[in-house]
Design a protein around this nucleic acid. Sequence first.
DNA 1: AAGTATTAGTTGACAATATCAACCAATAAA
DNA 2: TTTATTGGTTGATATTGTCAACTAATACTT
Lengths: 144, 144
Amino acid sequence: MHDNSIPDTVFAFVHSYRLAMRSGLNASELGLNYMHVKCLTFIDSNKSCTANDIVNFFARDKAQIARLVKDMIANAWVIKTDNPQDRRSQLLSLTDEGKRLALLIAETQGKVHQQMQKNLTDEELQEFKRVTDIIVTNLTDLNR
Amino acid sequence: MHDNSIPDTVFAFVHSYRLAMRSGLNASELGLNYMHVKCLTFIDSNKSCTANDIVNFFARDKAQIARLVKDMIANAWVIKTDNPQDRRSQLLSLTDEGKRLALLIAETQGKVHQQMQKNLTDEELQEFKRVTDIIVTNLTDLNR
DNA sequence: AAGTATTAGTTGACAATATCAACCAATAAA
DNA sequence: TTTATTGGTTGATATTGTCAACTAATACTT
């Protein structure tokens, strides 16, 4: 086994996880894309969140995030309010509908994660997370 | 720490790995996309390979692969030859230029993987691969 | 305080990746 | 031999990602 197979396997992880979430959510019926799911979850779990926080957390281009946010606002899942700390940015928060979706997402995630963890112990999962973090740090160093 | 963070971290892995490969390869100068890189590597490492093999290995839509193959043929990295076993399909193989690229890709991968593995032992990597495979299997079961 | 640099966000233009359905030809199954 | 399935192509379109230019607000420098 050569280490080259690690990235391929990880790609397969991402791909199948996406599919599982999408079908579990009935995402297309709801008009939800996967990036919406990620953003909604992030906003939901952060008391105070700006577009830039999303950009940094997911390491995505700010243009991409700006459009996703615009989209989510157009869907009335998210609202912007002035940020008293910094008038360049706005705080993002979920509408009631956004919260409803976030709940649905969390439920689906719960199911997918349960399936994902089959045949794995907590120790294995914790170790997996630890190693992934190290790899991400290593690669992030490289991209700079 | 909730397990929900695992997918986010894995997404970060994929994203930073892609970036590292792309910049390491000078990919845009070569006209190489990341999916090209994956396909070329796969063709290179398989004695006899059809478009359908790629579809199955990466679990991608066959339309997407058909276009990538068309693209790689247009770039003269790949050629098709009749498959004596099955006249519906053709065998894909690398041209000299394709082999040159595959070599360059392998070198870059070597560097990226070396960086990726910093501060990790072989056992940790092997374990990581093992757990990822289990997760992929779990999720694949779900998508069926 | 004034000028310069940086930062948050928006927009345009586009490239790369992914999806779905319809279709053809070849093969496999009945 | 009909019928069903498979490998592959194409059209149409959606989603995701990238790069550069730009505005307004903030931070930094002197």
